[in-house]
Design a protein around this nucleic acid. Structure first.
Lengths: 148, 148
DNA sequence: CAGTATCCCTCAAGATACTG
DNA sequence: CAGTATCTTGAGGGATACTG
């Protein structure tokens, strides 16, 4: 479980990490997992990813020990995917990427989703107050705790 | 300069960031830049990336305001690529990814490169001491300051 | 040395149909 | 609902030749 097959053998940890979660979807799945999403169809609808791709990415994330499949509550035949401790350790990565994106990739007045995960009790520093306009936000974003 | 063309228009900063630097090479170029690499051929040799791809990624990183091209020292006709302030702000991203990779993607005794950038005076916390075996390290890694 | 211009090819991703 | 199987496409990436 420490190092799944599809992870590169390079000695640099950054290179290995990007070989695993540096694709188009994996980190966004993790982001959604931090936001409380657990079900296959919720990931699918939220991301707009093809189902076969989602299936593959979930499997890879499970192989890597980032997510763990569990039976959905009380007698359900279906599964849900929750973050493991290793997966939770990705929080600084998602947070750092998010904070950088806010500062570097938005026009001065442009709105962006907050996506502050209700996770551990960690205080999460924000770089600046959010815009007043929420109209552009996706369903994903609206479920998220706002700080302002 | 705030938001180059090829960055997605999604409201989530994580999604935008990955759309820009979430490909196979961009973040590794940034990693190398933190490690002091500035010249085209040095990036190319160190990464093993095709030259046309490197050319394209450098252009994208410049467009995004992460790198800035400067004339190489004293009368040289060639350029070098150095991190801007926006690029330097990616340090927490690279560091977080690196620390997570160390913990999650290596066998217990397996060696990994340290890649602690000699940058600002920031103290950089390490998760554990490095292994004694450096034989697997690439040229990139050997230029790097070791902490142990 | 530092790229650019082509050509080619593989694989990631999407669409769709099917199944327990 | 939660996937799997199959097919197809297109973009990302590699190799090579060429240029100032």
């Amino acid at each position: 479980m420490t190092k799944p097959d599809h992870v590169s053998h390079e000695p640099c940890p950054v290179a290995r990490a990007t070989s695993l979660i540096g694709d188009r979807w994996s980190l966004l799945i993790v982001r959604d997992a931090f936001d409380g999403i657990r079900r296959f169809s919720d990931f699918q609808r939220n991301l707009g990813v093809a189902r076969n791709i989602l299936s593959d990415r979930l499997r890879r994330l499970v192989d890597a020990g980032i997510l763990v499949p569990r039976a959905a509550a009380e007698g359900s035949a279906y599964q849900e995917y929750v973050l493991t401790d290793v997966g939770e350790d990705l929080f600084p990565v998602v947070l750092a990427l998010r904070q950088w994106g806010e500062r570097a990739l938005y026009a001065p007045g442009e709105a962006h989703s907050e996506l502050i995960e209700t996770r551990t009790g960690n205080p999460v520093p924000l770089m600046r107050p959010r815009s007043a306009d929420d109209s552009e936000l996706t369903p994903h974003d609206t479920r998220v705790r706002k700080l302002a």
